[in-house]
């Protein structure tokens, strides 16, 4: 009567909670591993690809041997096709084309090589939905060629090692005959080690 039972400062409920926290930290620590990496493409890879493709096109004999009187090349940019194991968003895919277009000297290509780029069909369709007069203007959009790109990859794994080999393949195709008038590819490889989730 009147005696107080000494309270355990660290009772079994607190102990259980503490152990669960410790266990959770341990799980996270083990699962993240150490030295885990990713073999996914990076932003720098997209930038490099676009720059290399633009340089290759400008330096190609197909372009250098043209002049202002050569047959029209009205080149439509198209959405790159992703056949790789990487998840590449639509925005990332189009960023490659936009960077490529931005790297091209459009004025000199038009004047000196008679090469012009026309807006992609997707953009034209969107504008058509908001500007009815565009439909009339679009009838003049008759590309003679299409600039196409495909991203492929080959993956190899052993134990906790992973390597992804990527190929960016680009080509310009004559829209009337289907002739491939220009093509090139950029190859790159990424390696990763450890346990990580992308």
């Amino acid at each position: 009567m009147g005696d107080s039972v000494p309270r355990r400062v660290f009772n079994s409920g607190s102990a259980c909670a503490l152990m669960l926290v410790v266990g959770g930290v341990g799980v996270l620590g083990a699962c993240s591993g150490s030295g885990g990496g990713s073999s996914r493409l990076s932003n720098e890879d997209f930038v490099e690809f676009a720059a290399a493709a633009g340089e290759s096109l400008r330096a190609s004999y197909q372009v250098r041997e043209r002049d202002g009187e050569s047959a029209d090349w009205l080149v439509a940019l198209t959405d790159p096709v992703n056949l790789s194991s990487d998840v590449i968003s639509e925005a990332e895919r189009w960023s490659i084309m936009e960077r490529l277009k931005g790297s091209m000297p459009l004025a000199s290509l038009r004047e000196e090589r008679n090469i012009r780029f026309v807006i992609p069909r997707e953009v034209a369709d969107r504008v058509e939905g908001i500007e009815s007069d565009w439909q009339l203007a679009m009838q003049g959009r008759e590309p003679t060629h299409a600039l196409e790109a495909t991203i492929r990859s080959v993956t190899r794994r052993a134990d906790e090692q992973r390597a992804d080999f990527y190929a960016f393949q680009m080509s310009i195709v004559d829209a009337a005959s289907g002739e491939v008038v220009w093509s090139d590819d950029l190859l790159l490889k990424r390696a990763a080690v450890g346990r990580a989730w992308d």
Binding site: G26, L28, G29, A30, C31, S32, G33, S34, G35, G36, G37, S38, S39, D45, D159, E160, Q161, A163, L188, K189, R190, A191, A192, V193, G194
Partner: peptide, 14 residues
Amino acid sequence: GCASPPEGTSSGRV
């Protein structure tokens, strides 16, 4: 989790 990582190439471009 604190164990040594497997040896090999570091991640990134090769």
